[in-house]
């Protein structure tokens, strides 16, 4: 249970350490603070988008310990102790990740609103399954809505990275 602080009105705040993209941020959040709002409004990770805010669209997807989840459905106080990856941290260097490059090369982006969530969902898939079938790709992004592309090029972009992966074992995407 995180340390509890009280403000002048007597409201409770909880002192948490959030690990985002490898950096630790110490914050005092209220119980009702949603992870998506803390990432966007406090920490400026505005690559995490908000669409439905009800778990339906996937535009707020982040990875928590490598798994894609909707950050609009997670309390910030419950994200403590976990590794959070946002689109800003998907590539460890200042170059784009191979999957990001592939989205550009395959014209898998139109307005771009769904793109961060799509890339993180695709990334999570490729990390544990470097050679997915088209069906598995479609399933992995089934929680991410795109209003522009019709999905065809998004699926292509993810499969293109899978094709480049070494056949057996080896490094993953």
């Amino acid at each position: 249970m995180p340390e509890v602080l009280r403000d002048s009105q007597g409201s409770k705040h909880y002192l948490i350490n959030l690990n985002v993209n490898g950096d630790t941020y110490t914050l005092a959040v209220k119980g009702n603070a949603l992870l998506v709002n803390v990432l966007r409004d406090w920490l400026d990770f505005t690559g995490t988008k908000k669409g439905c805010e009800l778990g339906d669209c996937g535009s707020c997807t982040v990875l928590i310990d490598g798994k894609p989840v909707n950050s609009c459905m997670v309390l910030a106080v419950e994200a403590e102790g976990h590794e959070i990856t946002t689109i800003e941290g998907v590539s460890p260097s200042d170059k784009l990740d191979r999957l990001q490059e592939s989205f550009i090369a395959n014209a898998a982006i139109q307005c771009g609103y769904c793109t961060p969530g799509m890339i993180l969902a695709g990334k999570a898939l490729l990390t544990h399954n470097p050679h997915p079938t088209e069906m598995e790709v479609r399933e992995a992004i089934s929680g991410n809505l795109c209003r522009c592309t019709g999905y065809v090029n998004i699926v292509k972009a993810i499969l293109a990275v899978a094709d480049e992966n070494p056949p057996e074992g080896g490094e993953s995407a």
Binding site: D56, V69, A121, E139, A140, S142, G143
Partner: peptide, 9 residues
């Protein structure tokens, strides 16, 4: 059921 992100939580 649901979708992949929801099934993780």
């Amino acid at each position: 059921m649901a979708n992949n992100q929801i099934r993780h939580i």
